[in-house]
Write a protein that binds this DNA or RNA. Structure first.
Lengths: 197, 197
DNA sequence: GCGGCTATTGGACGCGTGCGCAATATCGTC
DNA sequence: GACGATATTGCGCACGCGTCCAATAGCCGC
């Protein structure tokens, strides 16, 4: 198999395993078994397991980011773009992609490559949201003195709420997450209550 | 050694190791070595490693909770109590206690006892904050139609921002966390901008 | 001093871990 | 059809893991 294709196949297999087991417990042998090949092959293409996991996380997380960005850029208005943001970002119960984020944040302390990838993608999410807010302010739809800070607040609120849903299951519901985070965003951007529902 | 004391010693040793290595990578043998005893002893007192880790996390997290609760109950006003809340909750760089929370949230999917403990303590934090907000509304200091939801929003925002500091280090600073979360809380509770600084 | 109870030891058991390397299979090129 | 390059194998190495258990040590009431 061509080197580029093989690399992609390894990453794809890693994603498949991580989807089932989580990032933290995915091993070299799991990935090899998933592809039906040997474990040595993985080390022929990647210097360490850290790099493999980082590449797999990168694929999943950047796919979600691009999907949201694409849908948001096609929105008719900044308010509509924000609505799409909340709809696509909020995870369901047992959301495997968000569980990957939880694993990545925790593993960041132990795996340098995972930390770098996680940090970079978090920054990209924040930048996407910041641009959307700035567009809205420019168009007169939002009132916000600090788009950068507001983006961090909205994103972090969403992360914090989503974390409760995914890690603890029953504490709060997906409905609460959407209602509560949109309510905070409306206050943050000077919108009428319910403008984002 | 008396059974009760031994149990406490095991938990204390687990905390000491987890402080260094994180929850996720703390092993039976680490704990035994920390106490200078054998690994078999740990299983004489705990049914599984899951239980040991949950007990250790419980000690650390509930200590922080009790400290905050004590300081807040001694506050002169609801505003002052809230100020103390933000001051004590916001983690520093490389905050080992908050790294334990990150580990617990991620490990929750794999370790039932850890999940139960993490969920319970998260709920207690939310309840503490909700009571504080209700007190403030009763005293006429806050304006808030939904203290329960507001408590979840403030807590989750803080978790989400703190997560960036601890997991990624350089994306945002502790100063930003305090400034941004107090700004959101002021909006949330009908306070003047800067009332919580 | 003795018997019994239990805290504690130390290691076995069966896995699983990342990593590295010699041997082999499978190509495209001449 | 032979050659050389390289993708791929299969296994070894040196650990580390949670769990369990027979054997021992040390203390208590008698």
């Amino acid at each position: 198999m061509a080197p580029d294709r093989r690399r992609e196949a390894i990453v794809a297999a890693t994603v498949a395993v991580a989807r089932r087991k989580g990032l933290a417990t995915t091993t070299v042998r799991d990935v090899a078994a998933e592809m039906g090949t040997s474990s040595g092959l993985i080390h022929h293409y990647f210097a360490s397991m850290d790099d493999v996991l980082a590449a797999a996380f990168e694929v999943v997380a950047s796919q979600d980011l691009e999907l949201s960005a694409r849908l948001m850029s096609a929105a008719a208005s900044p308010v509509e773009a924000l609505r799409i943001f909340f709809e696509t970002y909020t995870p369901a119960d047992k959301d495997w992609a968000f569980q990957l984020w939880l694993d990545a944040w925790a593993e960041a302390a132990r795996r340098p490559a995972v930390q770098a990838t996680s940090r970079r993608l978090n920054l990209e999410w924040q930048a996407l949201l910041e641009r959307t807010i700035e567009d809205g302010v420019g168009a007169g739809a939002f009132l916000c003195p600090d788009p950068g800070g507001a983006a961090w607040r909205i994103l972090s609120l969403l992360d914090g709420l989503a974390l409760q849903v995914v890690a603890h299951g029953t504490t709060i519901s997906r409905t609460d997450v959407v209602a509560w985070s949109t309510a905070a965003a409306e206050r943050e951007l000077g919108l009428m209550a319910g403008a984002l529902r």
